[in-house]
């Protein structure tokens, strides 16, 4: 009788290998891309440019971290681009012309609106068993229309100097807004890998029925993931205003697709149950580095669009190949 502690082969090595292939696979691609741009894109390696990249990926990182929760439970949120506009115009209006004292309430408002749209998305999806693709597509229109209605299509400006000042602050060389994104990613990583909730998120995405039959309310877990995703959008709206000093009802178009791309490049499965915050973070970096490097190289708009799309496809294909490899490894171990 072979007991559990006596294993054939060398499981530790093969586990390490499959783990490296797992999350670091995308990291290797990122390093390769960075090396390429270091060689061919002028100014790419300067400290200023690295700070720029970090600032530029901040929004997508925050949105993608939230999206990771939604995708892990097998959902999708197409409404983030519109919801960020709604959060921004409402919170922006609340702060407009005000001093720093008006900031906390506006932040809270933004978080609440984001979380509330997430709650609606999640609840409708669960309660009536509708694909979240459709529900959040509806929310995409509702939130955009609401943002336009609320502002009368005008751009909001004159935001508190304390807020816009924060948008340009650096902390030990890091842009403060990126530090916020990093902090959120760290919290998300902790929640997903160290808490009971995180475990149930993965398990539900993997086999909802098994989790339900083990005595857990999977519906609640899924709705909470949508709420987390929505709250992240609320944070992103504040960061947007801190960085750019304005809020307009047309902002954010297409953000949902960038966020989904980051999550998927990071190795998540759109059918749920697989993905990680670290992967998502690397995915967002990859997209940001790509845009930055191509712009520095002076590649034309059209070519840049084509290359970005091609890289997404290549990254996902490599990931699928990598997964087959690691499954083989773990099966033979």
């Amino acid at each position: 009788m072979i007991s559990i502690s006596v294993a054939r082969g060398n499981p530790r090595t093969s586990r390490a290998v499959s783990q490296v292939l797992g999350e670091a696979g995308i990291g290797v691609a990122l390093v390769a891309l960075a090396l390429f741009f270091l060689a061919f894109a002028p100014h790419f390696g300067t400290a200023q440019n690295v700070r720029d990249i970090l600032t530029q990926i901040t929004l997508n990182t925050i949105l993608a971290v939230g999206m990771t929760f939604v995708i892990l439970v097998g959902g999708i949120d197409l409404s983030v681009g519109s919801v960020i506009a709604l959060c921004a115009v409402v919170a922006g209006t609340a702060m407009k012309g005000g001093g720093s004292a008006s900031i906390p309430a506006a932040v809270l408002l933004s978080l609440l609106i984001g979380a509330a749209t997430g709650l609606v998305n999640g609840f409708v999806t669960e309660r009536w068993r509708v694909p979240s693709f459709i529900v959040t597509l509806g929310m995409l229109y509702v939130a955009r229309g609401a943002a336009e209605q609320y502002t009368g299509a005008a751009t909001i400006y004159s935001l508190p100097a304390a807020l816009t000042g924060f948008g340009t602050t650096t902390l030990v060389g890091l842009p403060a807004v990126f530090a916020v994104a990093l902090l959120m990613a760290a919290v998300a990583w902790f929640v997903l890998s160290r808490t009971v909730f995180g475990r149930l998120v993965y398990a539900t995405g993997n086999n909802e029925e098994a989790v339900r039959l083990s005595g857990h309310r999977t519906g609640v877990i899924k709705v909470v993931c949508f709420v987390i995703g929505g709250a992240c959008v609320g944070v992103a709206a504040i960061i947007y205003m801190a960085r750019l000093g304005v809020a307009s009802p047309i902002l954010g178009q297409g953000y949902e697709l960038n966020a989904i791309a980051a999550v998927v490049i990071g190795g998540a499965s759109l059918s749920g149950g697989r993905g990680s915050v670290i992967g998502t973070l690397l995915g967002a970096c990859l997209l940001g580095v790509l845009t930055n490097g191509l712009l520095l190289m002076g590649v034309s708009d059209f070519q840049r669009t084509i290359v970005t799309g091609a890289v997404i496809i290549v990254a996902v294909v490599l990931d699928a190949y990598r997964k087959r490899l690691s499954i083989r490894l773990s099966a033979t171990s």
């Binding site: 002028p42 100014h43 200023q48 960085r243 902002l251 712009l295 520095l296 034309s300 708009d301």
Partner: peptide, 23 residues
């Protein structure tokens, strides 16, 4: 020196022009 699209949008213009200025 350069001419690129920012898709009418504040955030994208910020990114595109930031990188333009670096280059």
């Amino acid at each position: 020196l350069d001419s690129k699209t920012g898709h009418w949008e504040t955030d994208e213009a910020h990114t595109v022009f930031g990188n333009m200025l670096t280059a």
